[in-house]
Design a protein around this nucleic acid. Structure first.
Length: 423
RNA sequence: GUGGGCGUAGCUCAGCUUGGUAGAGCGCCGGAUUGUGGUUCCGGUGGUCGAGGGUUCGAAUCCCUCCGCCCACCCCA
């Protein structure tokens, strides 16, 4: 009954969380470095919001009857009785921060990016974890379709530079608070006659959430879904023109996309432009990123000043999964093998100097044979032998472990030989 | 929340049908080599067989319960 009184049970990572280990962490770092460099040239700046927020932020921001809020949040009562939640996504937090710090007073479009863990209590599977990581960006303070197009262009650039190949960009417009309700009503009406012939899930959705029917993957339902009215035919004049402008801009930029009127996003705050990038070989969870415009979000969080914006978030776990190739950790530059007490001291000093010069160094102990074996196993590029002869001569035996060649060099020559390329 | 698959050494797995108290390969450690790795050879380390209970003279193996992981549904990143 009391866990701490039970016999020793091995403690493991909690369900849905995982340790990211080397060499995989190198791929994560590469992806994050690419993202930061792309964000920089598009003039985005990093924002770090708390992982813990008031539960109300998500209930009101994401939508009170979305799946995320109704059944996926890690919510708990703080000691003072207030309700706190581990963030399930970050857009609501960014908008909260934007409002709280009156960023609307700053000049121009406010461009922010973030990266970090999010938490949703779902059943784990391939590409889905309870603690997962997102890289995202928000452009806030403009309703212009030019901003939509630039955000999409940036994210396509980011994915390409990260090494993602064969992905597909899907875009849609879900209208605004004037035209979308009209469409949903039409859809609901139409489904009354056709839903009975569809799969069980669709029959249920036809009542509860008609838009979800469009997202059904059951093959037999596809012809029926194709025949349903398209939201694009129901957009009001403003939304229609906005969407057309976004598409013109994407065409100008030479960006390939597919308009998918059936694409549905799961968060309530989206309006007008929505987009998604999918990639095969990710299992059933094939979406690498999702995003869209959220012009009414600030108001639903109680803001008097509007904060129209558009943003996206990349599923970093999924991106890394699809660009990661099995490669070794970055190679060690040099392993120093000192023989004896005096050499040990000299080796430590040399290691210090080399490391300050940007060379990665491992200092071995014990027998030379042992050290050489170790050098080989960890994939060191060079081994440096420091023994009595070398100490006396001031010249050390540097062995290239790839070619097997060995030469006798001074410390300065070795540093020059191993110096990393400047960038 | 609902299905399906799988849990034996650090890793990948065999053994289970037809019960007789645990194996291989790789890894790790050491040796053949006093100051030279990768190949080879030799030796060694390593498992309450996911946990608990039952059947049995005897259970990794048969039965029950539980737990964990993976994949899928739902939904999303």
């Amino acid at each position: 009954m009391l866990a701490w009184n039970l016999p020793n049970t091995l403690i493991k990572a909690v369900k849905g969380t995982r340790d990211l280990l080397p060499p995989s962490t190198e791929a994560w770092n590469r992806v994050e470095a690419v993202a930061r460099s792309v964000f920089r040239v598009y003039n985005y700046h990093e924002i770090r919001t708390p992982i813990l927020e008031e539960t109300q932020l998500f209930a009101r921001g994401v939508g009170a009857d979305t799946d995320i809020v109704t059944k996926e949040m890690y919510t708990f009562e703080d000691r003072d009785g207030s309700s706190l939640t581990l963030r399930p996504e970050n857009t609501a937090s960014v908008i909260r921060s934007y409002i709280e710090h009156r960023m609307d007073q700053l000049p121009g479009v406010k461009k922010l990016y973030y990266m970090g863990p999010m938490f949703r209590r779902e059943r784990p599977q391939k590409g889905r974890y309870r603690q997962f990581y997102q890289i995202g960006a928000e452009a806030i303070g403009s309703e212009s379709p030019l901003v939509d197009a630039e955000v999409i262009e940036m994210v396509v650039e980011l994915l390409s530079l990260a090494g993602l190949k064969g992905f597909k960009l899907l875009i849609n417009s879900v209208g605004d608070k004037h035209c979308r309700p009209r469409y949903v009503e039409t859809l609901r009406e139409r489904l009354k006659s056709v839903a009975p012939g569809m799969c069980g899930d669709c029959q249920r959705r036809a009542e509860s959430n008609p838009l979800r029917v469009l997202d059904c993957k059951v093959a037999a339902d596809q012809p029926v879904i194709e025949a349903l009215p398209s939201i694009l035919d129901y957009l009001c004049a403003e939304c229609g023109e906005h969407f057309a402008a976004v598409r013109r801009r994407l065409d100008d930029a030479g960006i390939e996309y597919e308009v998918t009127p059936r694409m549905v996003r799961g968060l309530d705050y989206y309006m007008r432009t929505t987009f998604e990038v999918v990639h095969g070989a990710l299992g059933s969870q094939n979406s690498v990123l999702g995003g869209g415009r959220y012009d009414g979000l600030a108001e639903s969080l109680g803001s008097k000043v509007p904060a129209p914006g558009i943003g996206f978030s990349i599923g970093e776990d999924r991106l890394v999964m699809s660009v990661e190739s099995e490669q070794a950790a970055s190679a060690l530059d040099l392993l120093i093998a000192p023989l004896g007490e005096a050499a040990q001291k000299c080796g430590a000093a040399m290691a210090r100097d080399f490391r300050r010069a940007g060379i990665s160094v491992e200092l071995a102990e014990g027998k030379l044979k042992r050290a050489m074996e170790l050098a080989n196993k960890v994939g060191a590029r060079f081994a440096l032998i420091v023994g009595d002869d070398e100490l006396a001569a001031g010249r050390y035996a540097l062995k290239n472990l790839t070619t097997g060649e060995q030469e006798s060099l001074t410390a300065g020559e070795i540093a020059a030989r191993l110096a990393p390329p400047r960038n």
